[in-house]
Deep mutational scan, measured.
Amino acid sequence: TEEVEKIVRELQKRGVSQEEIQRILKRNGIDPRDVEHVVRRLR
């Protein structure tokens, strides 16, 4: 989703690792598959 993408991009800008990003998003109830998808697209 748009929202997830924004969050991921923001965290990446701050130098947060992929694993940490995924952990944060999972904690916020976001589907890990969505996270994977977004992270892969932004690489």
Rank of each mutant, 00 (worst) to 15 (best):
Q22N: 06
Q18P: 12
T1Y: 13
H37Y: 12
I24S: 02
R43L: 15
Q12P: 00
E19K: 10
L11G: 00
R43Y: 14
I21S: 00
I24T: 05
V35A: 05
K26G: 07
R27Y: 08
L25A: 02
Q18W: 15
R40Y: 01
D31H: 06
E3G: 06
V8E: 00
E19H: 10
K26T: 13
I7K: 05
I30F: 14
G15R: 05
E3N: 11
T1P: 10
L42N: 04
S17D: 08
D34H: 10
E5V: 10
V35P: 01
T1R: 10
L42C: 14
R41H: 10
R27P: 01
E3D: 10
I30S: 02
R9C: 14
D34L: 15
K26I: 14
K13R: 12
E2Y: 12
R9W: 06
V8R: 01
I24V: 06
S17W: 03
E19Y: 12
L42T: 05
R27N: 06
G15K: 06
S17Y: 02
H37R: 14
Q22L: 14
V4K: 01
K13C: 14
V39R: 06
V8M: 06
V38Y: 03
Q12I: 15
L11P: 00
Q12G: 04
P32L: 05
P32W: 08
Q18C: 15
E19A: 11
P32D: 07
V39Q: 03
G15T: 01
K26V: 14
G15I: 02
L11R: 00
R41Q: 07
R41T: 04
R40V: 07
S17H: 06
H37K: 13
K6E: 06
K26L: 15
H37A: 15
N28K: 14
R40F: 01
E5Y: 14
E36D: 07
Q22S: 11
K6Q: 09
K26Y: 14
T1H: 11
V39K: 03
R9E: 03
R41P: 02
L42P: 04
R33F: 05
D31T: 04
I7P: 00
E2T: 08
V8K: 01
K6Y: 08
R23G: 05
I30D: 01
E3K: 10
K6L: 07
T1Q: 09
I30R: 02
T1G: 07
E19S: 11
K13D: 05
K13H: 07
I21E: 00
L11E: 00
R9P: 00
T1A: 10
Q18E: 13
E36T: 03
I30T: 04
R9Q: 04
K26C: 15
R40G: 10
I7D: 01
T1I: 14
E20S: 07
R23K: 08
R43T: 12
S17T: 11
V35Y: 12
D34P: 01
D34R: 08
V16M: 12
Q18N: 13
R33P: 02
H37N: 13
E5T: 06
V38T: 03
G29D: 03
R23N: 10
E36F: 04
H37G: 09
L11Q: 00
P32E: 07
Q18D: 14
E5P: 02
K26H: 10
K26W: 13
Q12L: 15
R14D: 04
N28E: 12
H37I: 14
R23A: 10
R14K: 09
I21V: 04
R40A: 09
K13Q: 10
I30V: 12
R14P: 01
K6D: 05
R33S: 08
I24N: 01
D34I: 15
I7F: 10
R43E: 14
K6N: 06
H37L: 13
Q12F: 15
D34K: 10
E3T: 10
S17V: 04
E3Y: 13
E19P: 06
I7E: 03
V39T: 07
V16S: 04
V35Q: 01
D31Y: 02
V38A: 07
E20V: 08
R40Q: 12
E2Q: 10
L25D: 00
R23Q: 10
K6C: 15
G15V: 01
E10R: 11
V16I: 11
Q12S: 11
R23T: 09
P32G: 04
G15L: 04
G15Q: 04
V39S: 03
L42Y: 03
V16N: 04
Q22K: 14
D31A: 05
R14N: 08
R41I: 07
R43K: 09
I7V: 08
R40E: 13
R14L: 11
E36W: 11
L42Q: 05
P32Y: 04
E3L: 12
Q22V: 15
Q12A: 12
K26F: 14
E2V: 09
E10W: 13
V4C: 14
I30L: 07
L25Q: 00
R23V: 08
D34M: 14
V38P: 00
I21D: 00
D34W: 13
I7H: 04
I21M: 10
I7R: 07
V39W: 06
Q12Y: 15
S17A: 06
E2N: 09
R41N: 08
K26A: 12
P32K: 03
V16F: 12
H37M: 14
P32R: 02
R43P: 08
E3F: 13
S17E: 04
V39G: 02
V16L: 13
K13S: 10
L25F: 02
I30N: 02
I7C: 13
V8C: 12
Q22W: 14
R40C: 15
E20M: 10
Q22H: 09
R40T: 10
R33W: 06
E36Q: 06
E36M: 08
R14M: 10
N28H: 13
L42K: 04
R23H: 08
K26E: 10
D31N: 09
R43C: 15
L11D: 00
D34C: 15
I24L: 11
R9I: 07
R23F: 08
R43W: 14
Q12R: 11
D34F: 13
R33V: 08
R40N: 14
V8G: 01
L25G: 00
I7M: 13
R41Y: 07
R41A: 07
I21K: 00
I21Q: 01
V35S: 02
G29V: 01
R9V: 05
S17Q: 05
E20T: 07
R41S: 06
R23D: 06
P32V: 05
V8S: 01
I24G: 00
R23I: 08
Q18G: 09
E3P: 05
R40K: 09
K26Q: 11
N28T: 11
I24R: 06
P32Q: 04
V8H: 00
G29E: 02
I24K: 02
R41W: 05
D34Q: 12
E2R: 11
G15C: 14
E19G: 09
E19Q: 11
V39L: 15
D31G: 02
D34Y: 13
V38Q: 01
E10D: 08
I21P: 00
E20F: 07
D34V: 15
E2F: 12
R33L: 09
E20G: 06
V38H: 02
L42V: 09
S17M: 04
T1M: 13
E3Q: 10
Q18L: 15
K26M: 14
E36A: 11
R43N: 13
V4M: 07
V39F: 14
E19V: 09
L42S: 05
E10G: 09
V39M: 15
K13V: 06
R33K: 12
Q22F: 15
V8A: 10
K6M: 09
Q22P: 03
R40W: 02
L42I: 13
R33G: 05
L11V: 00
V38I: 14
V38G: 01
R40P: 08
Q22I: 15
Q12D: 04
K26N: 07
I30A: 05
S17L: 05
V39P: 01
Q22M: 15
L42H: 05
K13E: 06
R9H: 03
L11W: 05
R40M: 03
E20P: 00
L11I: 01
E36R: 06
G15A: 03
G15M: 04
E20C: 15
E36V: 05
R23W: 09
T1L: 14
Q18V: 15
I21L: 07
E5N: 04
R33H: 09
V4D: 01
V16R: 07
I30H: 09
R33T: 06
R27L: 11
E19R: 11
L42A: 06
V35N: 01
V4S: 02
R43S: 12
V39A: 03
R14A: 09
R40L: 03
R14V: 05
E19M: 11
Q12H: 14
R9G: 02
D31F: 02
R9S: 04
V35K: 01
E10C: 15
E2P: 08
Q18S: 11
V16C: 15
E3I: 11
T1N: 08
R43F: 15
E10P: 01
R33A: 11
R27E: 08
E3M: 11
R27G: 06
E5R: 05
I21F: 09
R9T: 04
S17P: 08
V38M: 06
R9N: 02
K6I: 07
R27I: 09
R9A: 05
